[in-house]
Every structure is written in structure tokens, then in C-alpha cells.
Design a protein around this nucleic acid. Structure first.
Lengths: 403, 403
DNA sequence: CTATTAATAAATCAAGTTTATTTATTTATT
DNA sequence: AATAAATAAATAAACTTGATTTATTAATAG
């Protein structure tokens, strides 16, 4: 089995490959194919993977025995024996995902196919470790208690999505610097380890959202793309070679730090000119209630007087940033999502496309600009998908060398 | 054997792995270790690669039989049987590299260890296909004729480094648009195929330079870095996970297209503000002879009145670009090289470091800025290294799936 | 001479491939 | 409607490849 059952976690190897590495690779490959393209018969998968039908058969039967894939309905109507499509077993793997945000935290229980089975929510004025991890501890216990014994044994980890260097936020969120600095000293894995034996994965929040979009989103199947997630603060993620790329230091896709230039030629960062907190500030200045921004379901239609110009400015900045991004890596597309209503996303993407047409693209292959499809939940879903990805799916950026 | 001898070229596979894939991977891994870290004994390599000594022994003996590695002098002085370090056989593989530049083309014959064995040079006012490929054809014939039969059989390919969308250059180089457009229709592999059976690899020129630096340079062994090559026009390359990353569409590291902003807030590209052609133009405006820029060996000391301000402006732009680049991928370093004298490179790097200190690095891990070590020849050497890399070394970005 | 280490041969093990068989269908024929 | 032929899927058995384990030999320092 790929990982969880025998407690075999992620090893960082430098080097050579042996047969069990091959088996692990091929297992992950088949699971990734099912994850990405949906149910498929063994013979079909063999053809696509370039493996012999027998090999695929052996691997699939083992995965079936382990309960992480299951047989679908036989497909009749063609000559010959009907084919039996195999599919991921939704109940085969479960995972927790915690998103730590500017104003709230979400805890999701995800199944193997990316369905959010349960979700808990916590609001605050700003996040503090004790409260957040208290929420996580009780939440994990509560959600796990609702599962039957078999499902509980199939919990494969806890993913935690938080902004990079959260402790530097104190001025932005209005928290006392001294208190907030305690985030810095935190060993998250150690804290979580005190109340759970599940493996813990800490990820950048926007990278988590990117992973959710990549694994579970409806976006076209691009091999390489950059991803924006516009929340209180804008962030980004990067997909290379069909796999989310976190970066050697875990800080790839820090697109909020892209340089922009103000009207007076002064240097700014994207985070200062293309984030929802700008819109929020304008609402505050206008004496309006900012809770309208974060309602469930989200509806910004009452705010169009403030939202429309915000979309315009944000789109302009995103268009410029998109091209700089594509100078570094020749992404096929730039995908945009965020914690806003769908019609806002749609409008934003359309405007970016329009601005892009007027940019200087010498030396570049201009990317397609398209909408993400998950929205606000992307971060906690992406957090939860990290343990699943690491233990069951194929990282095409790591080769065999670091499985 | 990895490739050349049995004429087995690069296949793009999508999928699964079998035993021969494993063998190929491990062979490439051992060769890459020798390439990167120099001679090493089998046992030592086994330890580092995490393979059994036996496996390494078998592979090395085969590579030795094939003549691409050879035994070094036994190392005595330690207890036990002396170890026999293995090393790449310089005469084991040869490759041609053609650089097509703004004012000249270079053809290099490279050996397996990266030594330029022979080099030919062609100058022009601007490059035209017929002249360039004529030079390549006669040059390849001439250099091959100088080799003995065994060495000739070990030629593994022709790498060609040219700028992206060369045909769009006509206004920059002062060529008649109509003539120059013929570059566009060109099927380079087909043209070269008419006079040579060697496999042909076309690469972006700056990416080629980056590969030369990565394989043969003295730069510290960073896992991920961005690379600038400043020639007539500035270009870039990208190293991810210890391997040069060309990009899905072959246009990764198009750093010349990074956006910059002029004093009036107008949008410009790096290529317009950080290239040697700017310096050249100023020399022309001052009525000076631009040949001083391109002499061999290069000496710009007479030009300091023009060079110093150029360095300053270039450094400022590079510092800003470096941070945008590191927002996309969390590179450990930014390496700077170019077709200029070493003291210019040194000064430039120092200034970039100084400018970087004043930049807004919120949300980023600031990269180290350091000097490349190869200089002008990097592009043709890098071009020549492409066939060697593709056929003998390990692409850690491709996994096993696309070897 | 002994302890130690390097290199490699022989036997073993793991995983993919090839070939052959079984099974469930559809399609053609009677 | 009954039956045979063709086809395709799935899998079992034998085979092949390549890494690992264990044992042996070689060379050297002390």
C-alpha cells in the first residue's frame, strides 16, 4: 500500500531507485489517473499508462483489497466481455484540513474524492494560537467521533493552511504585536502532536487553495499554471508539470509579493493593491458594515458602488502581474479565484483578459486567464488534500528520487 | 546504455515505470553524481545514492565497458583495500553547440567534462539563416574531420542556442523585415538533418547559458536559482530542483520580458533597460567604436565613463526583477553572468546586492545574488551540453515518467 | 599476521512482461 | 429462438530484468 496503513510516511531520499520504488510510483500513477480523469477500466488505464494489462490488474486488485478503489457498474453494449471501471472509493481515505484566515478558521473533513463531509467554523477578530489550536483539537475529536471505526482508521492526516510568516501581520490585522509574535515561535507539528497521532502537513494558504483547485476544480487540465487566491490578502500558487509546486523552501507562488508600481512611481506589492482588505477598508471609511463581505452565501450586490472600482483596479494589477509571472515560468494559464461571489470572480477574470490585451507581451507566450471554480472553501479543502496527495498521489516534480 | 550507442533517442512517455526505466534512471543518477561532484569510488556512490554496492558496481562496470567512465588512480593511505575512484571519461562523449547571437555565431565542440575542445567563430551585421547554417554545416564537417574514428562515433548531438522568436528582432538589429522573417518559417531540425544525422536540440540562448553554468560553472550548488545572461539583449534561465527547467513550451526563464516601470510610470521590459545594446547605443551616440565592447579578451576599462552608469542602472533593474522572480518561485539565489569582462560582472553583482537591501521583501525569502563563472562562452557551451544532458544525465524535474 | 575495507560473484527477491486461458458479451447464422 | 463465432476483458503461470543479500577475494595499514 502506498502509505497510511503501514504507517510509512514521507521519506526524503536523494537517490537511486529500486523495485519497491517502482511499485509505489505505479500505484500512485494509477490512483492519480483515477483522481484526475475519473473511473476507468484496467485495460484502458494500462494503455494510457504504457503498462501491461497484467501489471495494472495486479495493482488494482491490491488497491481494491485495501479498500481505496472499488468496482463500478460493468459497461455493456460493446462487443466482448463488459469492462469494469474502477474508481476511487470515497470512503477509502479521509483527511482533516484547517484553514487559518484573517477573520476566521475552518476545519473540514474531506473524503478521498474531495467531498467536504463535515465542516466547522470559528470566527475571531484576529487569530491567536491558543484559540485556533483549541478549535482544532475539539473539532478533530468531534468530527472523528462521528465516523465509524473503519473510517476513523482511514484518516490519513491533518493539513494546516496558514499565511507565510503570519506573525508579521500584527499591524495589518490590528493585533498587539507582542501577543501576535507568539505565532513565530510555534512548532505546529509538535502542538498538534500533543493531541493527535495523525501526520501533520503545514502549507501556505494560497498554495493549499491552488491544490484544491488542481485536484478537485473544474478548470481545464493545464500542465502549468499560476493561481491567484484573493482573500483578505491576495496569495498565489504554482502548478508545474501537472503537480502543485510548493517550492524548495515552501514559499513558491508568493504572488502577493509581486512588485507593482504606484502612480508616483513608488514600489508596492500586489498584496497592497489587489486584496479584499482594500475593499473592506473603503467600506469602513464609508461607514458601512463589513460583515456583508463575508456572509454565507456571499452576496456583494448591495456594494457595487465600491466593488466595481475595486474589481477594475485589481484586474489591472493582476494583468500586469500575470505577464511578469509568465516571464519566469511559461505558464499556459493564470487561474483566478477568491473568497468572493461567483459573479465578482467572473467580472474580474473578464476584466483581466481585457487589460491583458493592451500589455507588452514581447518575448512571452501570453497565458490564458481563467476562473477558478471552488471559491472560499478552497483553502481548507486544499489543506485537507495535502495529506492525501503526499501519501497516495503522484508528485511529477519529484521524480522517483524523493518519494 | 543510456542512449546514444543504440540510437535510442528521447521518447516522451506519459506513464508507468518498468525495470528498464529503473536502470536508465540509476545510470543517469550515477553519471550525474560524477558530473556534479567529481570522481568517486563505487562504494561511496552507493552510499550517497542509497543503492547497494553491488548495483553500483554492475552499473559502473557497464559504463566503463561503454567507455563513458574510466578508472582513476587507486587511493591508498587508508586501512583496507584501496578504493578506485571512477570518473567521467572526457573522451567518452562529444557534442556540438551552436550559438546564434546578435552580431556573431559560435560553434563549439565540447567533451563529456565540459571542456571546449575546438571552437569556430562567425561575425555578421545581423544573422541570416543561409549564412548561419552554412557556417554550421562546414564547421561541423571540419571539426568532425579532426576527430579520430572512435571519437567521431561518440558525437551525441548538435545543440543550437538562439533567442526566442528571433524573427521579431528585425528592428532591433537593423535587418530588412522581409528577409528576417524567413527565420520564422524555419524548421531547424529539418535543415540540420539535411547534412547531419546527429540529433538536434534547439534551446533558448539564455537557457543554454544557464545550463552551461549549472553543469560546468563554479557557482555554489544551489537547488533552485534564477539566472541572468546579459548579452546584447538580456535573457534568463531557471533551475528547479537541481535541473535546468526549460518550461513546457520551452520559454521558461524569459526574464528579459519581466515588467519594469519607467520614471514616468510607463511600462517597459527588462530587455529595454538592462541589456548591453543600451550601452552600445550610448557609445554610438558618443561617436565611439563599439568594437571595443566585443573584443577578445574583453576589456572595457577605456569605457568606464559610459560603463559605470550603465552598471548602476542595470543593477537597479536587476534588483527589482530579482524579487518579482522570487515571488513566483522561491529561488535560493539569483546568478548573474553575461558577455562582459569579469570586473564588470563583479561590480554589477555587488551593486545588485546593495540595491536589494533597500527593497520591500515582505512575504519573500530574499535570494542570494551571485556571479556566474563562465561568461561569454556560456551560450555555445550550454547549447552543446543539451544533447549530453538529454542522453546521459538525470532530469530531476521529469521524474521517471518522461525519460 | 590480522583487522579492515573495497570490489564483485552467486543466490535470492521483487516487480513488470509475455503468453495462454477463462469468462462474458455481441454479432452472425441457422 | 437457438447456437456458434468473434471479440474483448481479466487474470493465471512462466519468464525476464534488475536490485538486494550474503559470501568471497583482494589489497592494504598497522
Amino acid at each position: 500500500m502506498v502509505g497510511i496503513m503501514d504507517g510509512e510516511h514521507v521519506r526524503e531520499r536523494i537517490g537511486g531507485v529500486n523495485q519497491s520504488g517502482v511499485r509505489d510510483y505505479n500505484e500512485r500513477l494509477l490512483l492519480s489517473m483515477l483522481q484526475r480523469n475519473g473511473p476507468a477500466a484496467g485495460g484502458d488505464m494500462a494503455r494510457r499508462a504504457g503498462l501491461s494489462p497484467q501489471t495494472v490488474s495486479v495493482i488494482l486488485r491490491k488497491l481494491e483489497r485495501d479498500g481505496i478503489v472499488k468496482r463500478g457498474e460493468p459497461v455493456r453494449g460493446k462487443v466482448g466481455k463488459p469492462s469494469i471501471p474502477m474508481e476511487l472509493n470515497p470512503d477509502g481515505v479521509f483527511s482533516f484540513g484547517l484553514k487559518v484566515g484573517r477573520r476566521s478558521a475552518d476545519l473540514s473533513l474531506l473524503d478521498f474524492t474531495g467531498q467536504v463531509r463535515k465542516q466547522l467554523h470559528l470566527s475571531y477578530t484576529y487569530p491567536m494560537p491558543q484559540e485556533v489550536f483549541g478549535f482544532l483539537e475539539t473539532g478533530v475529536a468531534q468530527l472523528a467521533a462521528d465516523l465509524d471505526e473503519d473510517a476513523r482508521a482511514r484518516l490519513c492526516g491533518i493539513g494546516i493552511a496558514a499565511p507565510f510568516e503570519l506573525w508579521k501581520w500584527h499591524d495589518l490585522v490590528g493585533a498587539p504585536e507582542q501577543d501576535f509574535l507568539s505565532w513565530r515561535e510555534l512548532d505546529i507539528a509538535q502542538i498538534v502532536g500533543q493531541f493527535s497521532d495523525l501526520p501533520v502537513f503545514v502549507v501556505n494558504d494560497a498554495t493549499a487553495a491552488c491544490r484544491a483547485e488542481h485536484l478537485f476544480g473544474k478548470t481545464k487540465d493545464y500542465r502549468d499554471y499560476a493561481y491567484f487566491f484573493i482573500g483578505s490578502f491576495i496569495g498565489g500558487g504554482v502548478v508545474l508539470n501537472g503537480t502543485v509546486y510548493e517550492g524548495n523552501q515552501g514559499n513558491a507562488g508568493a504572488l502577493g509579493s509581486m512588485r507593482s508600481t504606484g502612480p508616483l512611481g513608488e514600489s508596492r506589492q500586489l498584496i497592497d493593491v489587489a486584496s479584499i482588505h482594500l475593499l473592506e477598508r473603503r467600506l469602513v471609511e464609508a461607514g458601512l458594515d463589513t460583515d456583508m463581505l463575508w456572509g454565507h452565501p456571499q452576496d456583494w450586490s448591495q456594494l457595487s458602488r465600491y466593488v466595481d472600482p475595486w474589481i477594475g483596479e485589481t484586474a489591472q494589477e493582476l494583468a500586469k502581474a500575470a505577464l511578469s509571472i509568465c516571464s519566469v515560468i511559461d505558464f499556459e494559464a493564470v487561474v483566478i479565484d477568491g473568497a468572493f461571489p461567483e459573479n465578482v470572480r467572473e467580472e474580474l477574470v473578464e476584466r483581466v483578459q481585457r487589460y491583458l490585451a493592451n500589455q507588452d507581451v514581447r518575448g512571452l507566450i501570453p497565458p490564458e486567464i481563467c476562473e477558478g471554480s471552488i471559491g472560499e472553501n478552497a483553502r481548507s479543502m486544499g489543506a485537507a488534500s495535502s495529506p492525501i496527495f503526499t501519501q497516495f498521489l503522484l508528485n511529477t516534480n519529484a521524480g522517483l528520487s524523493s518519494i
